[in-house]
Write a protein that binds this DNA or RNA. Structure first.
Lengths: 222, 222
DNA sequence: ACCCTGACGGTACTCCGTACCGTTCTACAG
DNA sequence: CTGTAGAACGGTACGGAGTACCGTCAGGGT
């Protein structure tokens, strides 16, 4: 026989989908799970908590990845993101059902936002300590982390991607590197003098740049 | 005699600060304001709403700024941010009292997060339509907007800055331009052929670049 | 003078969340 | 096998948020 907690989760999801979240009472969930109302509130602090995964465990796992100390900070942030999203991916259908609920019921939407902000706080402290000393920059990195994670997860739950881990990796890389560069970057214009003929220099330059591209037309200014 | 709504707000803030949020009942707020309990729920949809400003008005004003059509999208986003933060700055002490409450009471913290997410959704749609076609990029811009705004506002409420509007302007500019550039930017290496002597070309190039800098030493590669 | 509209106050109800208490099940020592 | 300590469970009672409904009253137009 499964644990009372699992019974309650199953009963809750069934009732929420058939009757709607607001229309189902905690009593009915407990009754369907075959336990008392008191047992429900012992397993979950509130009615909405039954929908969400164990965030304390997730937060602890994430923090562990962040503090693991292997790799540069950005790699650890990516590692932590992959850890978190894998927990959701492993849930399979359950995550999709939860998504339907959270996008429908305002109370659950708010609850989820509160959870995400806890992740963001932890990440903010991490980035502040490991990457930058500026509070605003750290908060921007943290919010970008959360945004990318949520976007990829939502894409996956809507069936819009089948490679969530790859999407998360490239999305996070782009966002974090874009944010950790100064806003107004300097461009370089260098002039060399040489006695070697250009016919010799240019092919060498091309191989140096990696991409064997020929000369491009300069885009005409509008 | 002031409106019933204002009376209720004043009574609520007094009681929340003296008795604490959870300990004060809606009945006591209404009694102190000299109105009935029903009147409270006619003015505010819930107990926590009495703490926050009129978000529907703020959202409408923000959206108006975004759709005003003057200036490029980034300038409009900045205009909207300035509009929002000025509403809070105009509140003066009230904003500070609210900050003390929201940073203490979890229920109010969650409520505020839910509000911010509504702003973020509106901004996401704006950036998606006006700046980029990619959903993730738009969401990143929106979350950065919110993060910068909240950071500056928090700084001001803690007395850590006296120039919030300027902070918001430069912070938003840096964040948005950093995010709207591709992460792995291409560098340009261009070669021209000319018959004019370099002694003529180089001074013209220097004035073209604005900064009259002389030739720099190329940094030696490590 | 009449009615209509809108704001107000009061009552009753549902349900969430908490505190408390008695009961039952289980593990473990004697 | 038995007694017992401790944890898990179920039931009851209560406070308070939020909703629905109804009666009252003031003001404004015809």
């Amino acid at each position: 026989m499964p644990t009372a907690r699992a019974q309650l989760v199953a009963a809750a999801f069934e009732l929420f989908e058939t009757e709607g979240y607001d229309a189902t009472t905690v009593d009915s969930i407990a009754a369907r799970a075959g336990v008392g109302r008191t047992t429900f509130f012992r397993a979950f602090k509130s009615k909405d908590e039954v929908v969400f995964p164990d965030h304390t465990r997730l937060l602890a796992g994430m923090q562990e990845r962040l503090e693991s100390g292997v790799g540069d900070p950005q790699a650890r942030a990516l590692d932590a993101a992959l850890f978190v999203i894998r927990q959701f991916l492993a849930e399979g259908d359950l995550a999709v059902h939860r998504y339907r609920l959270t996008s429908t019921v305002p109370a659950l939407r708010d609850r989820e936002l509160a959870m995400m902000s806890r992740y963001q706080r932890v990440l903010g402290r991490f980035f502040l300590a490991e990457v930058t000393g500026e509070a605003l920059a750290a908060e921007l990195l943290a919010s970008a982390w959360v945004t990318v994670h949520n976007h990829v997860l939502r894409d996956w739950m809507r069936g819009r991607t089948s490679t969530p881990e790859k999407d998360l990796t490239v999305g996070l890389d782009e966002a974090l590197t874009a944010l950790s560069r100064p806003a107004h970057e300097e461009q370089s214009i260098v002039v060399f003098r040489t006695s070697r003929p250009l016919d010799v220099v240019l092919p060498g330059l091309q191989t140096l740049l990696g991409e064997p591209v020929g000369p491009r037309k300069v885009p005409r200014r509008r």
